[in-house]
Design a protein around this nucleic acid. Structure first.
Lengths: 194, 194
DNA sequence: CGATTTTTTGAATCATATCAACGTACGTGG
DNA sequence: CCACGTACGTTGATATGATTCAAAAAATCG
């Protein structure tokens, strides 16, 4: 229990046994089945979830009901509608499970408590957000500046473990194109190599 | 000197005079003229810049030499190639001034020093990055999910002070379309309202 | 095996980019 | 203060390329 969470944590910030105790007392475990929602648009996001095992996705819905995947989260990643979590306004994103998953949950009040009372938790959070920020900046740049081919290829290079585990149409959604177009992009790539 | 910086800081995290002294001793001031580079692709980004006055932009260049604006920064914002700053690898982005500007600079070593020796600086940094993360997530979502019209309109609603001060083709670049297309989008919007 | 989900393919359509030209505003130097 | 040059925005014609809709083929699941 909590092993992936603390592996991740101590790789970034070492902890004494007491600190680990303190943090662990603020965590809880949640299991969630494939296709189950962790968060629905309109609800307030009350927790940050760390993935111990499994895979989730966060996505928005446009006016026509189309899904747009904002983020995948597999082992070692966290997922949450951060804006809703921080402001307590209704979520604009949905989160559901792509596989049966085990999550470590941190509530808003625990998060606040640890931020102010456990310096290492704050340091860890800063590193976590910084990493997420940098990854998203790269993605934004490739969405704006790169061709479909290279967007797909960077995704595959960066997240091969995700690519293996999610259907292709979700990758299409993540990189911002339709499943049909992605299928054709893949054919173009294959024929350029063959 | 440093007033915009500390206004911003203390609005998020109050400081004692001693703390302010400590932090201020790690800052320096830099003036930069319109069109001047603060950072060029390939150089290592050695500082974070806070804008006291003026306006800058961060952008990438694609294979055909096209500019893609990643970020604007006016008074109260910070700007930097964070990835290069943190990893000390060569920058992949360029930063230059859109107006004559005054900047408050923090070097990598000062940043590290303050992070470990000044808890409030760490708290401030966490809030700063969190804000930047949330803003970028919203932008990414609108880039993937929204129509050109609503992308333009959200930009204008969110950043009216920037819109007034930068040429239209830079707004086009920021929201990910060509200047010609933006011109036509604006006409469409105008005629739908008239 | 049958049912459902996923991927591929084809054809038509639509939206945006591109290329080229023009008009305008702006700022700089004479 | 004027004139010139440069940067900016608009417009039109055309080309490109991604989406859409429909259907079939392939893969996966119970």
């Amino acid at each position: 229990m909590y092993s992936a969470y603390f592996d991740n944590f101590t790789k970034k910030v070492p902890l004494t046994p007491e600190e680990r105790e303190l943090i662990q007392s603020h965590l809880s475990v949640k299991k969630i089945r494939k296709k189950q929602y962790l968060l629905q648009e309109g609800d307030v996001c009350k927790s940050i979830a760390f993935v111990e095992k499994g895979m989730l996705r966060e996505y928005s819905l446009d006016e026509q009901g189309g899904e747009h995947i904002i983020q995948f989260a597999s082992e070692g990643w966290f997922i949450s509608d951060m804006y809703s979590f921080i402001t307590a306004e209704p979520a604009t994103y949905n989160i559901d499970a792509i596989e049966d998953s085990e999550l470590v949950m941190i509530s808003r009040s625990s998060h606040d408590y640890l931020l102010t009372n456990c310096p290492k938790y704050e340091t860890f959070t800063l590193q976590l957000i910084t990493g997420a920020y940098l990854a998203m900046q790269k993605r934004l740049n490739s969405t704006i500046a790169a061709s479909l081919e290279s967007r797909y290829e960077s995704f595959m290079a960066l997240y091969p473990h995700i690519a293996q585990r999610v259907p292709q149409h979700m990758i299409a959604s993540y990189i911002g194109l339709t499943p049909e177009t992605l299928s054709r992009v893949r054919r173009r790539i294959a024929s350029n190599k063959g």
